[in-house]
Write a protein that binds this DNA or RNA. Structure first.
Lengths: 200, 200
DNA sequence: CAGGCAGGTTAGCGGTCGTTAACCTGAAGG
DNA sequence: CCTTCAGGTTAACGACCGCTAACCTGCCTG
């Protein structure tokens, strides 16, 4: 877990600002001049760093999906022999960290996927699918009475719950990161438990 | 509850197709020619029914927010004297019906709000806020140990859970409407219960 | 039957947007 | 000191898009 201390490159600045703008106003709603202005250069200067506007979105979405999947794989691998319930807690924790720290990316991730070139979209979809399958396996270990279809639905719904972070602090500050994370974690576990509890 | 049997007007056709297209590719990603083609007329013919593209989005969003709020108010009013838990169940059921029957609208509802004119956006926000407050009141009756901020966060998160329906049937059919509705309902109640159970 | 109007059509204007072209500049390196 | 090149700049092009103008055509009504 090497935390970076060096300054972000221009390329990283651009990606960060583009993510924020895309999340705020949609991919088609943001012009390249605007993205350039957000990092202090103007319009076409961006083309020294990216081949086009599409490429920025692609790199953002592939990056998100990849990091989510990589982190989840690591968490599952690290927990060899520990109870399945703890692995699920770890997955939930990782997703919450991501949802709280990178809210614009969470927004983009399920909103602008269709704006990608075919090849990029397929790649992102594949990464997302692997991520979901990882969750489904762990969830079914914890709640064996859940069928596969029900487990997959439950996982998608919990993603919806966890990804609600962009709406939480809208008209005031959220009560503090730790408290919010804990609340989301409890609710996710509660939702899974309720899914596995009954005639599903 | 008068169910309509007469044919939809041209205006209604347009709104329905526009909703689907906007949800699929985003407001800015759909041209008026495309919307026209979807209902069998072409491009500028739409201007006989709407003053502009913005007006279609506005009518869709105001309509959604209004119907959600009206339905919720009715459900709360009808349940005079019954247990708060049952009122919450009724609210959840209503929201699920909506999320399952009008998936494109659910998608639009929290995605394209910022594309509206100021006055329309304020109206929609106000309707949404009233809807949330209604839920918060009922939730706090059922789980009195929840603070107001926590209850509001919980409500938003459960909305995220229930609004995940667009992702459920993506690569196959969902297991049947009734089963899905029941699963979502259980998970929502489980999430609320978990939110109210602990040191929140 | 005359007239009006609802509801279409096509042509085209004006603005915006992504992208390219051509040019500039300051710092690094032999 | 000259060259190179990374990383900018402004101007402008071509495509697209929302919208308007001008025109057409059936149906309803007095």
């Amino acid at each position: 877990m090497a935390t970076r201390t060096d300054a972000p490159t221009r390329r990283e600045q651009i990606l960060k600002e583009a993510a924020r703008l895309f999340a705020d106003r949609g991919f088609h709603g943001v012009g390249v001049d605007e993205i350039g202005a957000a990092v202090g250069i103007s319009g076409p200067g961006l083309y020294r760093h990216f081949p086009g506007k599409d490429a920025m979105l692609a790199e953002l979405l592939v990056g998100i999906s990849g990091r989510l999947l990589t982190g989840a794989k690591r968490r599952v691998a690290e927990a060899d022999g520990v109870a399945a319930g703890e692995v699920l807690d770890s997955l939930i924790e990782g997703h919450i960290d991501f949802a709280l720290d990178d809210r614009p990316l969470i927004t983009l991730h399920d909103r602008e996927l269709d704006r990608l070139r075919d090849s990029d979209r397929k790649l992102v979809r594949q990464l997302q699918r692997q991520y979901v399958e990882l969750w489904v396996q762990v969830v079914r270990e914890v709640y064996p009475e859940l069928g596969e279809a029900a487990a997959r639905s439950a996982v998608h719904s919990v993603f919806g719950l966890l990804n609600s972070t962009p709406y939480l602090g809208r008209g005031g500050t959220l009560p503090g990161r730790g408290v919010t994370a804990e609340l989301l974690h409890r609710m996710a576990r509660g939702a899974f438990a309720a899914a596995g509890a009954a005639q599903g």
